[in-house]
Design a protein around this nucleic acid. Structure first.
Lengths: 225, 225
DNA sequence: ACTACCATACTTGTATGGTAGTATGGAAGC
DNA sequence: GCTTCCATACTACCATACAAGTATGGTAGT
């Protein structure tokens, strides 16, 4: 009997979609770049159909702009959308960390402790990619512990724009130590069931991302709207 | 020169998409119903391509379940998703009405007054469909006044599931008068810049929707997961 | 030099044929 | 009666062909 789990995307369409999304988020496909269905289908050696469906999906997520009969471009980063995404995320994360501060399964609390420890290691090794992933996992764990996984999924959608600017900051080295300390304090607040403090920490934590936007726009003007 | 504005959806795909979505939300396509690309393409007299792309989009919104090579069904309403959607909406609406209570353009305040007046009329005429639309417009106006239109758009996406259950309640006649009074009070709170009161009102307002879920599940058991 | 026009080479939108995987119903064997 | 097998009729997935709109560069006419 074959119980092997399929790790690979089950369909050609998903493979194309994931490939393109990855390239867009990592800026290998820079904002403003023109692409066409045919170009991508030749590049990936698949037919236009799965490419086309991936385009539709990415357009719906705001990562592509499709102009019928004219062409398709990678969306420019819209600062207004980024700020609004940040706003939404802040509201949802503050509410959830309040929930976490009222009751949170030990299992997930352990996960948070573990995560923070790993952050320290990654920080010392200056492994920023790892740090980015741990940051994601940290927040996701809080949502999972509160049984709000779907809410996290929505945030991921919302953050399509925001994530690109966060990615830009990876190069510009940044106060990871600050983030690390905030994460640490948040765990303490959850453990102490201090909802007010936890919420306040989260608020400040997510406000950091604003400040850099202007700087990024100056540094990469062609990427923004 | 022809300056006529296109009211009709520009593409076949959009037309199909809107048609299907309408039918799903109004329960003409009941949860659990099996449909196929071919069936719909014959019914609407278009090719399978635009139908297929509409299916993909609706699946992404959680309204269809596509099982590759097996078939496609209209999603059952998942109570957990509904509750989580309500949770998200509550957080975002509370935050926004706080903003509105701090500063809100007169222009939009007038819109709210107008809207509430119309609600009274619709209520007296027992025009529930109109009432539903006014309710939507009321909330949307608050978001627009705070320049958070995108946030409202996200809520609309999130509420794909929730809206179906809200639609079910249209038949079961309901405390519209209660909703009307709450709307009225919210406008007063915004005008008085009483953020705490406004937020509290919104919180209660959006909690109403919970109670009926169990009842609906008993009344239409086959529609739910 | 400048403008209007048009052939051409793009683009995405739509239609259709073929493929592989799956459910189903009936026949054969036990 | 029960199970097993298999032909058949589905399904969604993918590839390809055609249609229709748009940008572009060259050319002819002014």
């Amino acid at each position: 009997m074959d119980l092997k789990v399929k790790i690979q995307p089950s369909s050609t369409r998903d493979a194309v979609y994931l490939t393109l999304k990855e390239q867009i988020l990592t800026m290998e496909l820079a904002p403003g770049t023109s692409i066409s269905e045919k170009e991508i289908s030749l590049l990936l050696e698949v037919s236009r159909t799965p490419v086309r469906e991936s385009f539709q999906r990415l357009a719906q997520e705001g990562l592509l702009e499709i102009y019928p009969q004219r062409g398709t471009t990678v969306s420019l980063i819209d600062p207004e959308l980024v700020e609004e995404a940040r706003f939404m995320r802040e509201q949802l994360e503050r509410a959830v960390i309040r929930l976490a501060s009222q009751s949170f399964p030990d299992e997930f609390l352990s996960k948070l402790h573990m995560n923070v420890s790993l952050q320290k290691v990654s920080m010392e090794h200056q492994d920023y990619k790892q740090m980015f992933e741990l940051d994601e996992a940290f927040h996701r764990t809080i949502f999972e512990g509160c049984k709000k996984s779907n809410t996290w999924a929505v945030i991921q959608q919302i953050n399509a724009h925001l994530n690109r600017s966060r990615m830009l900051r990876l190069s510009a080295d940044h106060h990871w130590d600050h983030l690390y300390l905030q994460h640490q304090e948040m765990v303490q607040a959850i453990q102490a069931k201090d909802a007010d403090r936890a919420e306040q920490l989260m608020k400040e934590h997510l406000h950091l991302t604003i400040d850099d936007l202007v700087l990024l726009k100056e540094k990469y003007p062609t990427y923004f709207k």
